[in-house]
C-alpha cells in the first residue's frame, strides 16, 4: 500500500531522514519505534506532505506522492493523527470532527462517519459540543483519532497516540488501535511504548538518527537482543 524507497528529508539544510526504506502492506499494522529525535515524526510528516521530499521516492497504492500537493494527500486515503494531537482548541468536538470530513469526497458521508466515530467513542458523543481545549488528554486523543477517521482513510498514520496519558488511558488507546485495525484499516504507528505497541502490530522498524536500524516481525523484535540492549528495562 505504502512504499518508501531511499527516502531523504529534513528541515532546510538539516537532514533528518537518511535513505529510509519502508513498506506497509494492505491491512498491516506497522510500528516505527526509536529514541527521541530519531526522526519518527519527520517520517510521518514527510509521508503526509507536510515536509518536502529531498530525494528518493514514496508512493501510495502505486501513485507517487512526490508531486501531490500536501492538501491532496488525504484524497489518496492517508489520514494523519499528528504528534500532540493538534486539535483546534477553541472549536467544539463536533466542529473538529467536521474538519476531518472537509474534503468534497468525505462530506457526503459526514453523518454516517460521525455515527461510526460516536460508536467507537461514546464519550465524544456525550460531549459533542464541548470545546476541544477543555477536554482531558485522553478525550483529546480520541477526538484527534476520530477527526482522522472522519475521512474514511485506508491508511492511518498515528504519531505517539499514547504520549502524555495515564497508564489506564494508554491501555485504552492501544485497545482502540487494535479495534481499528481489526476493522481492516492499515495502520502506521509511531510509539515510545515499545512493549505495548509490539503486541498489537505485525511488524516494526527501529529508527535511530534518521535511519532504519532493525526491522522485522513484532514477535521476533520483542525477543531481539539488540533491541533489549538498546532499551534497557524492557
Amino acid at each position: 500500500m505504502l512504499e518508501l524507497n531511499n527516502l531523504t528529508a529534513g528541515y532546510g539544510s538539516f537532514q533528518a531522514l537518511f535513505s529510509v526504506n519502508l513498506e506497509v502492506k494492505d491491512g498491516e499494522a506497522i510500528a516505527v519505534i526509536g529514541p527521541n529525535g530519531a526522526g519518527k515524526t519527520t517520517l510521518l510528516r514527510t509521508i503526509s506532505g507536510m515536509l518536502p521530499v529531498q530525494s528518493g521516492n514514496l508512493s501510495m497504492e502505486g501513485t507517487s506522492l512526490k508531486d501531490v500537493p500536501p492538501y491532496r494527500i488525504i484524497d489518496l486515503g492517508i489520514a494523519h493523527v499528528p504528534e500532540n494531537r493538534r486539535l483546534f482548541p477553541s472549536m467544539s468536538i463536533e466542529d473538529n470532527l467536521r474538519m476531518g470530513a472537509f474534503t468534497p469526497n468525505a462530506r457526503p458521508h459526514y453523518e454516517e462517519r460521525l455515527d461510526f466515530i460516536f460508536n467507537l467513542f461514546p464519550r465524544l458523543k456525550e460531549r459533542r459540543s464541548q470545546i476541544a481545549g477543555t477536554l482531558s488528554g485522553g478525550e483529546q486523543q480520541m477526538c484527534a483519532i476520530g477527526r482522522a477517521l472522519m475521512s474514511s482513510p485506508k491508511l492511518l498514520l498515528m504519531d505517539e497516540p499514547s504520549a502524555g496519558l495515564a497508564p489506564v488511558i494508554v491501555n485504552q488507546v492501544f485497545q482502540l488501535v487494535q479495534q481499528i485495525r481489526d476493522q481492516g484499516l492499515t495502520v502506521l504507528i509511531v510509539e515510545q511504548n515499545i512493549e505495548q505497541v509490539l503486541q498489537i502490530v505485525d511488524r516494526a522498524y527501529l529508527m535511530e538518527v534518521g535511519s532504519i536500524k532493525i526491522s522485522g516481525k513484532a514477535g521476533e523484535l520483542i525477543q531481539s537482543e539488540s533491541l533489549r540492549k538498546a532499551y534497557v528495562g524492557l
Partner: peptide, 24 residues
C-alpha cells in the same frame, strides 16, 4: 459550513488544516 469551519480552524492551526485537505 465547511468553509466557515476551515476559516475558524486555520486561524488556530494553519499547519494542521492541510492534513484535512484544506488548501490554505
Amino acid at each position: 459550513t465547511y468553509l466557515g469551519a476551515a476559516i475558524r480552524a486555520i486561524s488556530q492551526d494553519r499547519e494542521v488544516v492541510v492534513l484535512m485537505g484544506v488548501n490554505p
